[in-house]
């Protein structure tokens, strides 16, 4: 029996990610382009992942799109699904014992409750950038640091600085005010991480936290936010080197299921 190849595409608000799976188990190739919905990112991510796998679209048995820009790929994908379902699936693949997934993406936050590998409940943030990746982008710009350096810089903090978790605009004003008072940038960054953690914790408690807890999405790469969340939740949080690909991984897994059904 020949192998089944499936492609999962996650078109987020700030990045486009792809994964090709072989037989629903083996990651053959992956790609990530740092621009998302409404840009050339999705097509470039697809071209890259196919090139990395040395395969063509026609060799894919099923293609499933997810993420904020999933509907824009309906000419190319066989099906689209919400990123919540895909994140649940991806996290369950990486961490079979997971019950709670915290996904902080570019413009929203999702908390998923998982039972036996399936999402049974979820919460999303209100229409507000506070606590999202966008919040960290804005703060990094004000602080004149790279967003990928926030985790490392925050770890050097010597004291706690309180930053509001209510509103990105107000928090930005607070950061500017702290900078003008000469507060150390590392302390401010630590405060920002705690602010994100505080916001997300409220969402987690709305749904009820059940260990094991997994964090996915781009912000999971920020060790400062992960540590702040662990402290707020008083619970260890698992992350994976594939954290940014988790939605695409879930999409590729659902695609594999669909391909198996199709081939029966």
């Amino acid at each position: 029996m020949s192998a089944i190849y499936t492609l999962g595409i996650d078109v987020g608000s700030t990045a486009s990610k792809c994964i090709i799976l072989k037989d629903g188990e083996e990651i053959v190739a992956k790609s990530l382009i740092d621009v998302g919905a409404g840009t050339s990112g999705p097509q470039r991510a697809i071209d890259t992942v196919l090139a990395n796998a040395d395969m063509t679209r026609e060799e894919m048995d099923f293609v499933l799109a997810t993420g904020y820009g999933r509907n824009s790929l309906m000419g190319l994908a066989d099906k689209q699904m919400s990123e919540l379902s895909c994140h649940a699936r991806g996290a369950s693949f990486l961490f079979p014992e997971v019950h709670t997934v915290i996904d902080i993406g570019g413009q929203d936050v999702k908390v998923l409750h998982i039972e036996n590998g399936t999402m049974t409940n979820f919460q999303m943030n209100d229409k507000c950038a506070a606590g999202t990746g966008r919040f960290l982008d804005v703060m990094a710009r004000v602080l004149e640091v790279k967003v990928e350096d926030l985790g490392r810089l925050g770890a050097m903090s010597q004291k706690t600085v309180g930053i509001s978790s209510t509103c990105t605009v107000f928090a930005e004003s607070e950061v500017i005010s702290q900078l003008s008072m000469g507060t150390d940038k590392c302390d401010i960054i630590n405060g920002i991480h705690r602010s994100v953690a505080s916001r997300v914790t409220g969402l987690v408690h709305r749904i009820g936290m059940v260990p094991e807890v997994v964090m996915t999405g781009g912000v999971a790469q920020n060790t400062g936010v992960v540590k702040a969340l662990e402290a707020e939740l008083d619970c260890p949080i698992h992350t994976s080197p594939l954290t940014q690909y988790n939605g695409a991984l879930g999409a590729a897994l659902f695609a594999w299921q669909a391909a198996c059904r199709k081939s029966r």
């Binding site: 904020y68 990123e83 929203d108 999402m119």
Partner: peptide
């Protein structure tokens, strides 16, 4: 965002 929530909710209800 609302569309995503509705679609995900449909998945949950179906499960």
């Amino acid at each position: 965002q609302a569309y995503t929530a509705i679609q995900a909710f449909a998945d949950v209800l179906e499960m």
